[in-house]
């Protein structure tokens, strides 16, 4: 599924299904993301957006479908003619190439901000501790928190914690970053500082999938926007189209409910 220039997409999702017991959360999602693209995913809660993200780094195991990064299958290996789930070590290696930022940050409370960022490189990439800490400090600098290096998470505000969490994900030098409602758990006045960091990453060319409720932000920053509902992609396209003149009725209904914005149907230009 190469684009016009014939490049292979960085991330390819084919026919993804996920069922929890009797509840089908993802019903056949297919998606291709090019390197450097910033993709926003919007939709009502329960639409499967978070599940989609969690399947990509195999925190949830899909019921059906394929996920490929740079042409390589995630989560499963092809041995002989069969698909077999990857071993822990291989899974871990794959996950190291994908960065994830959680809604509730999940910083490690028993480590300082600096060590939160450095622990991945030290324990997983087996870097030398001094070098790893040096790089970690640079990353903290990048998110504007170098002065909080020796502070424990409980002393940081939500916005600060989330920025440290972003630095922690970046420390692994991922090819792809996943943001799972990164600002939803933050007090409104703290949201901006996190969005600034995300904006910066996009400008630097990081490939990103962002699940968000911040519509204005999504419109500003994305190359493409996807609207999901009931486990399927209902509509996708450039932000100005999705947000200003969506084609699907469901998209319009969602946007009307979420933002007090008049959306005009395509024909009423």
């Amino acid at each position: 599924m190469a684009d016009e220039a014939g490049r292979r997409p960085l991330l390819q999702i084919v026919g993804l299904h996920k069922r929890f017991g009797l509840l089908e959360v993802l019903r056949g999602v297919s998606l291709a993301v090019q390197a450097g693209e910033t993709l926003s995913i919007i939709g009502p809660s329960g639409s499967g957006k978070t599940t989609l993200l969690r399947c990509i780094n195999w925190l949830e195991r899909p019921t059906d479908g394929e996920i490929l990064i740079n042409g390589q299958l995630i989560g499963e290996k092809q041995t002989g003619g069969r698909r077999v789930e990857m071993r822990d070590v291989d899974l871990a290696r794959m996950r190291a190439r994908i960065g994830m930022v959680f809604q509730r940050f999940y910083l490690f409370p028993h480590l300082t901000a600096l060590d939160n960022v450095a622990i991945g490189p030290i324990k997983v990439l087996r870097q030398q501790a001094t070098a790893a800490r040096r790089d970690a400090l640079a990353l903290l600098e990048k998110v504007g928190l170098a002065h909080k290096r020796d502070i424990y998470p409980e002393m940081l505000s939500g916005g600060q914690q989330q920025r440290v969490a972003i630095a922690r994900a970046l420390a692994m030098q991922p090819a792809l970053m996943l943001f799972d409602e990164a600002t939803s758990a933050l007090d409104p006045e703290l949201v901006g500082e996190v969005l600034t960091v995300i904006r910066q990453l996009a400008a630097e060319g990081m490939t990103m999938l962002i699940v968000t409720h911040e519509m204005q932000f999504a419109e500003d920053i994305s190359d493409r926007v996807i609207f999901m509902d009931h486990g399927q992609i209902v509509e996708e396209g450039p932000p100005h189209r999705i947000f200003r003149s969506p084609e699907q009725a469901r998209t319009r209904a969602f946007l009307r409910a979420v933002i007090d914005r008049q959306v005009y149907p395509v024909d009423a230009v």
């Binding site: 871990a92 991945g120 997983v124």
Partner: peptide, 16 residues
């Protein structure tokens, strides 16, 4: 649970 997931997300094995 989120602690375990965050650790897995940066590439640690379950044992790590």
């Amino acid at each position: 649970r989120g602690q375990n997931e965050a650790a897995l997300a940066i590439g640690m094995t379950p044992a790590q």
